[in-house]
Design a protein around this nucleic acid. Structure first.
Lengths: 245, 245
DNA sequence: CGGTCCTTTGACACAGGTCAAGTAATGTGG
DNA sequence: CCACATTACTTGACCTGTGTCAAAGGACCG
């Protein structure tokens, strides 16, 4: 289903590093835990670029966890299902984010492309073997895992203790902050996910998300420019409402 | 505030390894990512044993993250507060659990002893320096972080999508499972935390937790032996209710 | 141009929160 | 060892925020 493209190898031009694959997350590794040229080359050698159509699954919970990925384009949602079909989206991933890390043999959650998505794929076994030789890479992974853990704890506060209004506002600010980190404009925030996805991320229903958004709009706190584009009109007031994020 | 005790150092007896501190988590490192004797000695050299009284703070959110810990005795809760005082407990820690890992300069949450607690404390700077030389240790940390991340995702499902009844039952099964992992009896489950703590962990109120427990008791699904001791009378029925944990 | 999906809006229901009271367990100073 | 205060837990009555159900408009698509 996914079209596979073998990325250009960087072996020939070690001096062109640190940028072995201009649309690939490998660059991110080098940014945070500098690897030398030959180390980067070895990583690049494992890598395959994968393109995924919108709404296509990337992997499902309990699948064999044979690969790990970095998102290099598009947007991905990860989620878990209860037996009766209730869904909790545990994260939205954007370029630069890591996907599929687990120390079990199976994925702990499902992942699906929300928009046309490009991934860098690494065979997990081979990457793990490399870890023994590239401690810098492992440090980078540990840093990312700690970061995700902190984000997960923030999300627990949101889900366990915030009102619908606070959740929606926190979410919009979260999107805005993420956009900034990726060097994109922070204010008219792009909202690539459906109301349903937002609801399943925030532990609410579609109706409540919709009502809350129109309420915020009515109060001139936000402006719904387009359905997938929100202007945060009074950021400070919004931060106040969100309760500390 | 916390009473500190300098533990006996293991430097003198490298041949007594792998058990440099018989009541300390260092042993755990060796179990999962074998370190050789000199590596263990270096770890043990960093370590200090700390005893904490019940209800005493270990560290607070936004404190300088100068140490990391392993819990070697007792029980710890970690939590985050909203500005207005609402609290979300993000985890209960027991012997063998790791505490205080962050890749920021500040702790991301507060930690408090629930019972008399013993910790192994490591200066973070020195431990991080050691990581460069002990990749096995870092692998171990990465494994723990992944595991915690998976647990955090389960908790998001609980907080975002489960009913009060499902949450309480999931919680009891969680406690039971944790006890088994620590080699303790699984069935009359020890519940060392207060109803208030349970509520703040499950995103509920004390009253709802209390009512739900008595409801479960009335339906002969559990038995409240003592206030801090619960017998799971019909485990299979409970698993059904919990919805897949 | 008819169907499907997404979003919004309204009317109503109910799970769980709030407020209040009472009881039991625990600690504390005299 | 005993008043007394404090904290933890339970239970009841009531309330409200959010869920449920229903419907309708709009956007997109084959």
């Amino acid at each position: 289903m996914a079209r596979l493209t073998i990325a250009a190898q960087a072996d020939r031009q070690p001096q062109s590093l640190p940028d072995p694959c201009e649309n690939c997350g490998v660059r991110d590794f080098s940014a945070c835990a500098p690897l030398n040229d030959s180390e980067l080359c070895r990583l690049a050698g494992l890598m395959t670029t994968v393109n995924i159509e919108p709404h296509q699954p990337i992997f499902s919970e309990a699948d064999a966890a044979d690969h790990v990925f970095t998102v290099t384009g598009g947007a991905v949602k990860i989620y878990k299902l209860l037996p009766d079909g209730r869904r909790q989206i545990t994260g939205f991933l954007f370029p630069g984010d890591f996907l599929g890390l687990t120390h079990n043999a199976l994925y702990a959650y499902s992942a699906e492309a929300m928009t046309a998505t490009r991934l860098c794929r690494f065979p997990r076994k081979k990457l793990e073997a490399l870890l023994d030789e590239l401690p810098k890479l492992e440090q980078r992974l540990l840093g990312m895992a700690s970061h995700e853990l902190a984000a997960a704890q923030d999300q627990m506060v949101l889900l366990g203790r915030k009102s619908a209004r606070e959740r929606v506002v926190s979410f919009l600010l979260m999107l805005s902050g993420g956009a900034v980190r990726r060097g994109q404009p922070d204010n008219p925030v792009a909202v690539p996910m459906t109301r349903n996805d937002i609801a399943d991320f925030l532990g609410l229903t579609v109706e409540t998300v919709s009502r809350t958004m129109t309420q915020l709009k009515t109060q001139h706190l936000i402006e719904l420019m387009d359905e997938k584009q929100v202007r945060l009109s009074r950021i400070e007031a919004l931060r106040e409402i969100a309760g500390g994020f």
